[in-house]
Amino acid sequence: MTVHDLVKVLPEPDVLLARCRAFAALDAVLGGTWQRHRFEPRWSEGVALAEWESGGGDEYRVVFDPAGVLLMGFDHESAATPWRVEPRAHWPGLLDGVPAALSRHLTDPALLFEGFLDATVCVWREAGAAAWSCGPVAFDGYDDADADGADWLFEPLVGGVDAYVAFAEDIYGRPVDRELVASVVAGSPV
Score class of each variant (00 low, 15 high):
158 V>Y: 06
104 R>H: 13
109 P>A: 08
68 G>Q: 08
139 F>A: 07
78 S>Q: 00
159 G>Q: 00
123 V>T: 12
7 V>I: 15
34 W>M: 11
15 V>M: 01
120 T>Q: 10
86 E>R: 14
72 M>F: 03
178 R>T: 11
104 R>A: 14
131 A>Y: 12
62 V>G: 03
23 F>K: 05
32 G>A: 10
78 S>V: 00
82 P>F: 01
70 L>T: 04
100 A>T: 14
56 G>D: 14
129 A>S: 15
9 V>G: 10
181 V>D: 06
23 F>L: 07
140 D>Y: 11
125 R>C: 08
7 V>A: 05
80 A>M: 02
10 L>K: 02
141 G>E: 05
2 T>Q: 00
107 T>D: 13
82 P>D: 01
57 G>A: 06
146 D>I: 12
151 D>S: 15
176 V>P: 05
9 V>A: 11
168 A>H: 06
14 D>G: 10
187 G>C: 03
66 P>I: 06
189 P>A: 12
45 E>W: 00
153 L>P: 02
152 W>F: 13
35 Q>E: 10
62 V>S: 06
57 G>V: 05
105 H>M: 05
1 M>R: 12
93 G>A: 04
118 D>Y: 14
165 V>M: 02
157 L>S: 01
69 V>L: 01
135 G>K: 05
76 H>K: 11
162 D>A: 13
154 F>T: 03
